[in-house]
Design a protein around this nucleic acid. Structure first.
Lengths: 227, 227
DNA sequence: ACCAATAAATGAATGCCATTCATTTATCTC
DNA sequence: GAGATAAATGAATGGCATTCATTTATTGGT
């Protein structure tokens, strides 16, 4: 039996054995962590986003991450803020108010429907540590104000729209047969009939139809509040 | 040194050593598990709801639970279905449509705002295994139908309302200072002004104001669809 | 030019958690 | 009465985030 040589031969391919201690230049920073997290999520989903996997993809020990983020929730907040910058607010101040809201809400939903595990985190975490998210709110608020919205109602309207967007983002991820009553169908005839009736309409995805229906109602209702 | 006696003396107080093997009468069933889970959630929150804690509160080994539920998600589904029965659908078919929707949506939000960790589970799990949830949908669907709603739009309208309710349920749990921009306030003047302006209105909880605003817009918008 | 402080890495715990499995045994069915 | 089944036990198992002592290169102060 060969001697148990503690050689670095068992290292993951492509990685380099590094001594402990401060490296010549910092390997990690929040930007790199964010990018790696997004890449990991894109490839393996949120189940694949573990601190260990994140560290491995950065060629680093898991504990090293904690010099740059306080917790895994902190990583999720970084990801969230990156995504907030991808939401389309460009129409505010350019296009009419209703067009801008429509573009914003659809893109907001589309971005976060791929990232629903972030929603519980966003909902609870203060916005102070998320500059890009804050910038999104600023653009939307300015758009509402310039459209003649009474100032005391702006935040409430945004919060309501956002609630709808987050709920709808979940709906996008639902399986198609979520409303299949199965063996209980006989006990819920009205519901089953309505589900079947909707299935006959073969226009767009049901989730998109519902989102449009709700969004247009909100836009119409809120539009009437403008001075 | 005393002999290592495997006595039952170290048992938790109040518990009784039970031999392995089938007991005279089954100790566990889904109803009991559901009740214990709700009790645990009420006392310790969702962080306290672990399979081990649930088993302990039922005086049983954790593995015993798996004779009655397939997984922890299964427990969450049981809890969800119990809660669905607490949502107020009593006004459908009795009160005018808009009153019924209002009562339903407010109670739906109130029930689930205490149980937001269920929302990701509900959104994805087919409804076939949740009879009480299905019963709720049936009542709401019948109410919409009887109010003259076009059948092909009923499910979409319910889905949209539900999305809004779930999103709003998260909002209820948000900390009060969630919109405090902190040191970045200077960079988001419109947003900060709108937040401050809303804070001056000391009527109701901001989360309730936003919910009412959105809900009334949806009710008005959907009400116009009735034939 | 030295020296102390700091920043950023390592790797070895720690403790929690859901879930699985072999085993036991009372009850039910034929 | 015998064999199958249901429902419990307790001992793994493997994954997870997080902590901690330790190492060491860089930085800033005197």
């Amino acid at each position: 039996m060969p001697a148990p040589t503690p050689t670095p031969s068992a290292l993951p391919a492509g990685s380099v054995r590094r001594r402990a201690g401060r490296p010549t230049a910092a390997i990690l920073d929040q930007d790199g962590i964010t990018t790696a997290a997004l890449e990991l999520i894109s490839n393996k989903g949120y189940n694949g986003l573990t601190m260990a996997a994140l560290a491995r993809s950065l060629g680093v020990a898991p504990s090293a991450l904690y010099n740059h983020v306080a917790s895994k929730d902190d990583v999720l907040l970084l990801v969230e803020d990156h995504l907030a910058a991808m939401v389309d607010v460009s129409a505010f101040g350019v296009e009419p108010w209703d067009v801008a809201v429509r573009r914003w809400a659809w893109s907001y939903r589309d971005v976060f429907s791929e990232h629903t595990p972030l929603i519980p985190v966003i909902a609870v975490l203060p916005v102070a540590n998320a500059p890009k998210t804050l910038a999104m709110y600023e653009a939307v608020t300015a758009g509402f104000r310039d459209a003649g919205f009474p100032e005391e109602k702006i935040i409430s309207a945004i919060v309501a729209l956002e609630a709808f967007v987050f709920g709808a983002a979940y709906d996008v991820t639902a399986p198609e047969d979520i409303f299949d009553a199965g063996s209980l169908a006989g006990q819920v005839p009205n519901f089953t009939a309505a589900v079947d009736r909707l299935a006959l309409e073969r226009h767009a995805r049901p989730t998109d139809v519902a989102f449009e229906l709700g969004l247009e109602a909100l836009i119409t209702g809120f539009g009437a509040l403008r001075g």
